[in-house]
Design a protein around this nucleic acid. Structure first.
Lengths: 111, 111
DNA sequence: GGCACGTTTGGCAAAATGCCAAAATATCAA
DNA sequence: TTGATATTTTGGCATTTTGCCAAACGTGCC
């Protein structure tokens, strides 16, 4: 009697494309300035000028960082008058910092 | 009459060091091979040889990828006999792929 | 037109990356 | 001890990426 049920759950990898686009998302988050931006936006939308003040570098640099985040869908923008407001595009991103904290705790307990 | 209650919640940035170490975690995830590793480990621990077979590159390369993930506390290793088994060090990492999916959905709805 | 806000582009120097190959380390077995 | 197996570490290289700024451009408002 041949058993068709697997004993151990077999891992089926996703297609390469998925890992690549996923990695792009994390690359976008893998910069301290952009992480600061995300942290700020987790508390509500902000215009570019305000974010620039927060980060303390050229506004064109900030605009480029925002483009990186927008290209992977982490943030969304909306023009209102002369200003452009940015906000997080997906709620899950907010939980990111809690996970970072969890990792930090795990790091410390293993010391 | 000076109001002491803030109307809008004031965002207080964390210290730079925190953003930097957080960014390091995302940099570690920002590579398709490492993301594949994390996806595999989300289904249970694996030894290096098995992960190497999964990825299809030199074992030393895989070992280096694992070191990157270990250095930021994403994975933990345990030697059993001649083999070294790797596993995810924090549960939250498992949710990562759900969040990627959420972002992908948000990207599509905005098209 | 002129000002304010933001984006795009070009360019550069520096840093990081990914990968492999070879040597080193560790465990077990004969 | 010697050898086999499994993994890590190191060195080096070529490529890619990066972050940043400055200048030019686009857009909306007065």
């Amino acid at each position: 009697m041949p058993s068709l049920s697997a004993k151990t759950p077999v891992f089926v990898p996703r297609v390469t494309k998925e890992y690549r686009s996923g990695a792009d998302v994390f690359k976008a988050l893998g910069h301290s300035s952009r992480l600061l931006i995300v942290d700020a936006l987790a508390h509500g939308e902000q215009c570019v000028a305000h974010l620039t003040e927060l980060i303390g570098c050229d506004i064109s640099t900030v605009s480029n960082h925002l483009a990186v985040l927008r290209n992977v869908g982490i943030v969304a923008d909306e023009r209102r008058g002369q200003q452009v407001f940015y906000r997080l595009a997906a709620p899950c991103v907010t939980k990111v910092f809690a996970c970072l904290e969890e990792l930090r705790a795990a790091r410390e307990s293993n010391r």
